[in-house]
Design a protein around this nucleic acid. Structure first.
Lengths: 351, 351
DNA sequence: CTGAAAGCGCTAACAC
DNA sequence: GTGTTAGCGCTTTCAG
């Protein structure tokens, strides 16, 4: 056994008494045939030496890696974590290792991150980041689009999670969009709530620059409009796209109602489950009963929030499946396709 | 611009009119000096060609990678996701890219996963997986210990998250343990609950084979013992280490109490926040009021669960920090050190 | 079937 | 300062 550092193929070949080429063919699949006996000897030697092929060297020699890059906004966010879980599963099925890089939600960092990713020469890359309106894949003054273009040119399959309303995928040739139908999902939710008897609404719109947030608001408003219900402009309140943002926005609404200048709608739609949870907390803090005094609906159906009380009405998104499909799409294993959410009505809007 | 495939350093050197070596020195740091003018020319050429160094080739040539491998049980679990977030941040600070592989909680898959990881020749690896009692780093019949040993021999820094009570880190030389003091944390929680006035307890122990679960149970029981309170054996009920496991275990307890053969303790300790949430759901389903009729405490202080009602008493673990420290430890940037949890008393045990 | 040898893209002595 | 030239560990023609 070599002193230190890893065992190389040459070590194995020597011990097995065969050439480098034969050892390579025996160990790592090759179309060429090798005498069974040699294969055995090589495998035995590899085992004895605890040989593991150096993936980097293989990549250089083969000109292609076994890496799939996943770029997420924030891995601690359950939304992205669920997508990552699905992506890892699918990549694993394809024999690929996943590298995760995080933009931290900072669009300016995106180009830099993509540069690093490009250096990895991944077989495919999945972009699961919150896009900003009008930014396409280009943002923060830096040129993410160019980086993605380079990735594509270098032969990587790229797929980006996009919201309908998102021009991102269309902007860059070679990028496949896994579109999530936020628009119609939100519209369907609106319809379901109306049918449930709700007739006045407010919307916690999160960051209106985020395509996803924007699409959900648009869809919800349109869905209400189809039932003849209008949402006054001042009832759509922006905030951070987080739990605390939801809390703050709801506080704003409650304050306004308390001041008597405005009447609190019977139902509030938060563009995210997380934001909805924040809203519920705010409502409860005011001594009101969420789900009774004022209904709250979210979006995503984040698993971890299944036990919040009242149970959230929401639009279920098959997050893990989305991650899997994005990977399969990037690898060219699957055709483009949109993903629909499913309206789930629960206690938080039961009236 | 080359037809397809990536731009190489040679392309850049040619365009800049310098040698390969100079281009390399200009672009990727080197101790050697290069005339400023040449540097400019090379950088301009690189920019024009959209050159990005092939990380694999650099790794082969340098004999060392810029990769940090993170092995987790399940990235969708908020516990691991939080650790991953911290790890990614720390790795990023060190200029490393992190690859995440998941064992899916299957100990048998662990050895295989480690094999793949070894092929990556990572600079360091962080093992954040649920270890099983008595398994050390070896489990499922396969030899994870050997794989880790090979990793260490190949020069990778390795750090494993371990629970006190865990012999894992000690078993394999070269592996640094980031120990999480589950034992004392649980004991402290027990003490705090007793001081709060609770005097009869049950424990939802999760999977008793998992070191972490075991340590928390041990610690809790010991903590109670220090206050002269004994937990009858039949009041420690095992289950899956999940939200549903917590729910089931609590149902078992409630059924038993309903049958009149046993009296329900006033407080239940679940070894995980997730399990605690399941228990709360079970209690509520029976028409009892969690936190009033029966207290519930958890462990971890998972952020996502901050808004469950009643707010959970728990032991806060700085998960992201743990991820960061594990990385820094594996890289040899920080000395070994244990991490303590902090008892947080909230409404779920307010009586 | 097997081996010798030419790369893969890049770095690091070693000259000039 | 800069260029030449060996490698790094592995794959893959191209001859045997």
């Amino acid at each position: 056994m070599p002193e230190r550092g890893a065992v190389t193929l040459a070590d194995v070949a020597r011990l097995a008494g065969v050439s480098l080429a034969t050892a390579s063919r025996a160990l790592n699949g090759s179309t060429r045939k090798v005498r069974p006996e040699s294969v055995d000897r090589v495998q035995a030697a590899a085992l004895e030496l605890r040989y593991t092929a150096n993936v980097q060297a293989q990549a250089v020699a083969r000109g292609t890696t076994t890496t799939l890059a996943l770029v997420v906004g924030d891995i601690a966010d359950p939304y992205f974590a669920a997508i990552a879980a699905g992506a890892i599963r699918a990549a694993d099925d394809a024999g690929l290792v996943v590298t995760i890089t995080s933009t931290g939600g900072d669009p300016a960092r995106e180009a830099a991150v993509l540069g690093v990713v490009a250096g990895l020469r991944p077989r495919a890359v999945v972009l699961a980041v919150s896009r900003r309106l009008g930014a396409g894949l280009t943002s923060g003054g830096s040129d993410s689009a160019a980086a993605v273009g380079a990735l594509v040119a270098a032969g990587a399959g790229v797929s980006a999670l996009v919201s309908d309303l998102d021009g991102a995928a269309a902007g860059v040739p070679g990028v496949h969009g896994v579109v999530i139908r936020n628009l119609s999902g939100a519209a369907a939710l609106a319809g379901a709530l109306v049918e449930q008897g709700h007739d006045s609404f407010a919307v916690l719109s999160g960051d209106p620059d985020l395509v996803t947030a924007h699409a959900r608001v648009e869809g919800f408003v349109a869905g209400l409009a189809a039932h003849g219900i209008r949402v006054p402009d001042d009832s759509v309140v922006p905030s951070a796209f987080t739990r605390d943002g939801g809390y703050q926005a709801m506080v704003t609404l409650l304050d306004r109602a308390a001041a008597g200048s405005w009447v609190l709608p019977r139902c509030v739609f938060a563009v995210t489950d997380l934001m909805a949870v924040g809203a519920v907390a705010a409502i409860r803090e005011r001594g009101l009963v969420p789900g009774v005094d004022v209904g709250v609906a979210g979006f995503d159906d984040v698993q971890m929030l299944a036990d919040v009380v009242p149970a959230l009405s929401t639009v279920r998104l098959p997050l893990e499946e989305i991650g899997e499909r994005a990977v399969r799409r990037a690898l060219g294993l699957e055709a483009d396709g949109a993903i629909d959410g499913e309206v789930v009505l629960r206690a938080s809007t039961a009236r």
